[in-house]
Design a protein around this nucleic acid. Structure first.
Lengths: 145, 145
DNA sequence: TCTTGAAGCTATAGTGACTAGAGCAAGTAG
DNA sequence: CTACTTGCTCTAGTCACTATAGCTTCAAGA
């Protein structure tokens, strides 16, 4: 049996995060010690490592919830899991596209800055007028979600 | 003078977002009409477009706040603006690196899925065991911030 | 002038995935 | 026995909005 601290250290997850996962139902409520402390079986380490790894790959918690419930039913088709992973791949690719465009725009902006005064600063000027931009990095989904 | 709706449409920003920007002090409180509706001068359109454009480029609002106060003092050195933009570029590049690693890991995962049952699903298996991975996409800063 | 519909107002709460803090209780090493 | 660490619960904060509820004001047509 593992305390929450050992579990977290083993899986590379912070203790409050584990309690948060329990709160949202991603981890089951474990048994408690006499003094009300959580005690986890080994199997929870596997589950938590799975979650951690999926988070590292950028899967949202809701997708991870689905993946976990799939992994509990080994006889079913893998198609659903494949769909979730493919969706994640597509989302990563979309963000890559967008970030690449931003990178080149920012590069141009910084490169052109001669570091004089604000009044002839390219950084400020370009931000003030989208017409200075090579691409249309307009809108689309938020960069950070 | 522009109503909040016209302002939003012109700048490509939703109306509640404009009110939010006012609330956090990124836009000044405008005069009101007799019926208590916000009325904006042209200059606010410039300011809002600046914000919008910087957000499109991924700058956080706090950085934008700094950039705006810089742009209000045209005689000062542009070095501070350059530093903010360079930091943003660095952050975009860091996220690009990370996303590229994730992309190839997800590609491998999805490509290996033969779409049988869950019990021999590569997607589930790889997520369950980090040792299957080519790279160490471990930790670092959160993908989405 | 009346009416209808769009656009505006305030205020509160929700999103995702945690993180931080306060103020305790329990476990452990010397 | 005494520190010290680890654990507990609960609340609130993060970022950049978005959504909802319930209300008022405005502009255009009949």
């Amino acid at each position: 049996m593992l305390t929450i601290g050992k579990l977290g250290a083993s899986a590379g997850v912070k203790v409050p995060t584990i309690r948060y996962y329990e709160q949202i139902g991603l981890l089951p409520e474990p048994d408690r010690s006499g003094g009300n402390q959580r005690l986890y079986p080994r199997s929870t380490l596997d589950r938590l490592s799975f979650i951690r790894h999926a988070r590292d790959l950028g899967f949202p918690l809701e997708a991870i919830r689905d993946l976990l419930s799939l992994s509990d039913r080994p006889d079913q088709s893998c198609a659903a899991a494949d769909a979730i992973a493919s969706a994640q791949l597509a989302s990563v690719r979309a963000r890559l596209q967008r970030l690449k465009a931003l990178e080149s725009e920012l590069e141009r902006m910084v490169a052109q800055c001669a570091c004089g005064t604000i009044s002839d600063c390219r950084v400020i000027e370009v931000l003030g007028d989208h017409a200075h931009c090579a691409q249309d990095h307009h809108g689309a989904e938020p960069l950070l979600a």
